[in-house]
Design a protein around this nucleic acid. Structure first.
Lengths: 192, 192, 192, 192
DNA sequence: AATGAATGAGAGTTCATTCAT
DNA sequence: TATGAATGAACTCTCATTCAT
């Protein structure tokens, strides 16, 4: 529903997702994306105004999908269950995208549209978590939301960079993270 | 101590720090760095083999300074004090570098030297925290170290991106973070 | 027939032939060749991978044309007639190329493709003459082939460098050369 | 006798001879020559006005030495002996310089001084041979001189390019060449 | 809508040469 | 005389973007 796009639009977006994700924005070439999509170079410009706009479209699609999944994860759950579910989702989401690491690091610099969009996404993500925390009575919900997301981001990095990380490790890490966030590290101090 | 380099070496490194930090690797031009440093373009290549190597040199200097400060922060402190001090240092460090944001995001992709160095830096930083946690009896110290650093990274982002953030807010955030990490978010749940 | 190349391909090749021939490889600029060909700089790189490859293409075209003409010159002729015809062709060929001297002297150094090609060309040329000599019963045909070609090369130099050399002198020189090669210089010693 | 030059002058000239000879003019760097000579880059410019002038000085020294040896080879000899001696000298001279091939091929293009000098050298060399031929009664001595030199040049190429060529092959080739030049190739036609 | 040949601004890098010491 | 740090002009090559077909 909404916009009518042809097959080529999807093909280009998918190809861009792969190429940008593999090489990052600056090292990706439009010609390679076009080839990967099975269209001519000029065709890319029929659907996207510029390389930057194509990057933004890729990013937007990915982020929106991400937020939608997160939203679902929070309905009808206790704080502990919600955090666990979010942690799990966060890590699994990126685990599936191991091959697209660069999409999250190597982004173009100067484009104001993208900066604006990313700011918005981060805000939306933070708000999602913040509202959940607030509704469960956690004080300083914004601060706690940011801290939670940050924790997950760093743990995600491990998954992206560490080739030995297996899918079953993901859930274990998620559980540890949710627990830490709930009870702090002292819960894990050895009695001496 | 240290290598003997002339004034120009320092000038170029400082200029590169500023320019790379402001625009990121790909959008920075050697000619601009040279101009900023007050030397000719060719002079840059007397001191650094390539744009990539210059970037690495800038990054290395910054990271080493960072680790040195962190190391000092941990000696002779309890777990709580150490975490608080680290949180504070982490945030203050980047607060001072508000203008050099891009140095931490926009890095060249393909250079193996840089990838290797960054991996090493992250490892060293993690180990620093991990060892402190382990010596205080925290279980799963590696996991907790990563989570702590992640938390700080995300909070740092706020500082970098939010122009309204004042220096006094930094300490407050650091305190909240250390406390959260020690006792979990439930410590802040309102009685209802 | 052969490969299908557009007009631009030919135009660039012709321009490169002129510019390389006039200034030599190292003193020629791609920008000048492009301008001479009436195309943009970038267009050159659509058809040729590098300056070296462009040079090789120019050289190859010229050498192949040369060998083809030589081959024709040898069919159904006696030794004396064949040598005379070859000498004539050799000298006329370069006489027509007076303006492209540098193509034969100033070649890039390091390119292995070119070195290989030139070795092959010299070999082919030598074999052509050698086979003719052998079929006419001349002993040591390879040595004699090299000597003959060398003689012609030096005489060619005269033509290239001496601006006063007229076309009619060419035939005279060719006849002298063929005769010398057949009978030696003593045939021309004055009785005393 | 004549000019007073220090040790450094000689050292630079020798280094330039080696480097130019190995890599050709355009691929040689002044810095490498200076290093090879054991002096600083700037010192080269105390003795030679430019890279071109240094190349000319190297070439001149080599050519003068060559002509001097040739001159000696011709005194008090018959035509046949003289030609044989010259052929032998020509080939041996370059055999000894196998490692300096590039000096004879890759020369700078545009320098008028060098062009003038080379023209002069070729003239002197030709005259040397021409006078010998004339004094022995050979008709058209200039033409014959050029043909002889050309023959030798081509045979020299073989020596320079063919790594398997042994020193003893040199004399054999020289004898064949002198004989061919004296009596023509028909002297070697098989009776049938 | 689709193509892909053509463009040309712009980047990194080299290296002969200079000149203050 | 000797140095070598500094210069900056000049080059090759890339690639996002356009537009005639």
């Amino acid at each position: 529903m909404g916009e009518m796009h042809g097959d080529k639009y999807e093909a280009i977006l998918n190809a861009a997702y792969t190429v940008f994700g593999t090489k990052g924005f600056y090292e990706s070439k439009i010609s390679e994306i076009a080839e990967q999509a099975g269209v001519a170079k000029g065709t890319v410009y029929l659907y996207f105004k510029s390389k930057e706009q194509l990057f933004i479209a890729v990013t937007r699609r990915d982020c929106e999908q991400y937020l939608a999944e997160m939203q679902d994860a929070l309905v009808n759950r206790t704080l502990g269950e919600g955090l666990l579910r979010m942690a799990s989702l966060h890590l699994h989401y990126y685990y599936k995208r191991k091959q697209h690491t660069k999409l999250f690091f190597m982004t173009p610099n100067s484009d104001p549209d993208l900066i604006e969009f990313m700011r918005g996404f981060i805000q939306d993500y933070t708000d999602l978590v913040k509202n959940k925390l607030a509704s469960e009575g956690v004080l300083q919900p914004e601060f706690h939301a940011k801290a939670f997301i940050g924790m997950m981001e760093r743990l995600k990095m491990d998954i992206l960079l560490n080739q030995d990380f297996r899918e079953c490790d993901v859930d274990q890490t998620a559980a540890l993270a949710a627990n830490l966030f709930m009870h702090g590290c002292e819960a894990g101090v050895q009695k001496s």
